[in-house]
Amino acid sequence: MSERFYVGAYWGPRRETALECARRAEVFFSMLARCDPSFAQWYRGGRGAPLDLPGHPVRPEVAEWEQLFLRGMNRTDADGKVIEELGFTEFVWNAKKERTRVELHCGEYSPSGPGNTCLLYPPEEGAGRERLLCASVLAEVLTSVATAWEPDFAMASSTELVRLIQKRKREVRVGWLTYLSRRLGMVPPLPAPVHIEPVGALGWLLVLSPNLMTASNPEHVTFTARVRELLDRAGLIERPEPESVGE
């Protein structure tokens, strides 16, 4: 069975309005469109979508994303009241088959919530998957995520590799490619062939190998674990419990 790869970005409580999140989404999808041709158009669910399309086309505009986020606010089961502190949730995809899916959860400022995330799942098979599972493409995707959403950390890896490497429930996850915000601290020297490059003034992108890294390769697991240990010694792995954001 092939491993399931994904890009995941994570950040703590950050109170933002639907408009502020929409501005970030516009930047993100604009940058994402330059990473791969398949990222040029995205679609959402809902009744009445054209039968010949994957869903309702999403216009890459702030106004469109603001309305989507307002529609995706969390509500109570009992009376449908908006739970403002849990922020906004929306997901989109780019095709009927061999689709890439993006899930967004932003604007949350509750310390007890699931956390703010931007998740991208490439196709599970096909030519699109092979094209996207490339270090240079994923580096551009992570740069887009970091620039638009300013997460604490982000990574591109297989779910299986992350599970083998992660030691604590709450920690910075290290994968094939890893982004670390400057808010976490300074990145220590790391062994070859790790390539470290800055992402503007926001943080650093770590590419552990120019070639695909998998959980099925023991050498890949051992090397990723070694990098995680070095980052842990530098104080970059432990994540403190989130604090409330003031009203």
Results as ranks from 00 to 15, higher is better:
Pro111Ala: 08
Ser112His: 12
Ser112Gly: 09
Ser112Pro: 01
Ser112Trp: 12
Gly113Ile: 01
Pro114Tyr: 00
Gly115Asp: 03
Gly115Gln: 03
Gly115His: 00
Asn116Ser: 10
Asn116Pro: 06
Thr117Cys: 04
Cys118Ser: 06
Cys118Leu: 11
Cys118Glu: 00
Cys118Ile: 07
Cys118Val: 14
Leu119Arg: 10
Leu120Ala: 03
Leu120Arg: 00
Tyr121Phe: 12
Tyr121Asn: 11
Pro122Ala: 06
Pro122Lys: 07
Pro123Asp: 08
Pro123Ile: 08
Glu124Phe: 08
Glu124Arg: 15
Glu124Cys: 06
Gly126Gln: 10
Ala127Cys: 04
Ala127Pro: 02
Ala127Trp: 08
Gly128Ala: 14
Gly128Glu: 12
Gly128Ile: 05
Arg129His: 13
Arg129Thr: 10
Arg129Lys: 15
Arg129Gly: 07
Arg131Asn: 13
Arg131Val: 11
Arg131Cys: 09
Leu132His: 05
Leu132Val: 09
Leu133Ala: 05
Cys134Asp: 15
Ala135Phe: 07
Ala135His: 03
Val137Asn: 02
Leu138Lys: 09
Leu138Arg: 10
Ala139Pro: 03
Ala139Asn: 01
Glu140Ile: 01
Glu140Gln: 14
Leu142Phe: 05
Leu142Gln: 04
Leu142Pro: 01
Thr143Asp: 11
Thr143Leu: 10
Thr143His: 10
Thr143Gly: 10
Ser144Glu: 06
Ala146Tyr: 02
Ala146Ser: 08
Ala148Pro: 02
Ala148His: 04
Glu150Val: 07
Pro151Ser: 08
Pro151Met: 04
Ala154Ile: 07
Ala154Asn: 09
Ala154Tyr: 06
Met155Arg: 00
Met155Gln: 02
Met155Cys: 06
Met155Asp: 00
Ala156Glu: 07
Ser158Met: 10
Ser158Leu: 14
Ser158Ala: 15
Thr159Arg: 11
Thr159Ala: 13
Thr159Met: 13
Glu160Cys: 06
Glu160Gln: 08
Leu161Gly: 08
Val162Gly: 04
Val162Thr: 12
Arg163Lys: 13
Arg163Tyr: 12
Leu164Thr: 14
Leu164His: 15
Leu164Asn: 15
Ile165Cys: 12
Gln166Phe: 12
Gln166Ser: 14
Gln166Gly: 12
Lys167Gly: 13
Val172Asp: 04
Val172Cys: 11
Arg173Cys: 14
Arg173Met: 14
Val174Glu: 13
Val174Lys: 14
Val174Asp: 11
Val174Tyr: 13
Gly175Pro: 09
Trp176Tyr: 12
Thr178Trp: 04
Thr178Val: 11
Thr178Phe: 07
Tyr179Leu: 04
Leu180Arg: 05
Ser181Val: 07
Arg182Glu: 02
Arg182Lys: 15
Arg183Asn: 09
Arg183Gly: 06
Arg183Met: 04
Leu184Gln: 04
Leu184Asn: 03
Val187Phe: 01
Val187Ile: 08
Val187Gly: 00
Val187Gln: 02
Val187Tyr: 01
Pro188His: 06
Pro188Phe: 04
Pro189Gly: 09
Pro191Cys: 13
Pro191Asp: 13
Pro193Ala: 09
Ile196Leu: 02
Ile196His: 01
Ile196Gln: 01
Ile196Gly: 00
Ile196Phe: 03
Glu197Ser: 10
Pro198Tyr: 01
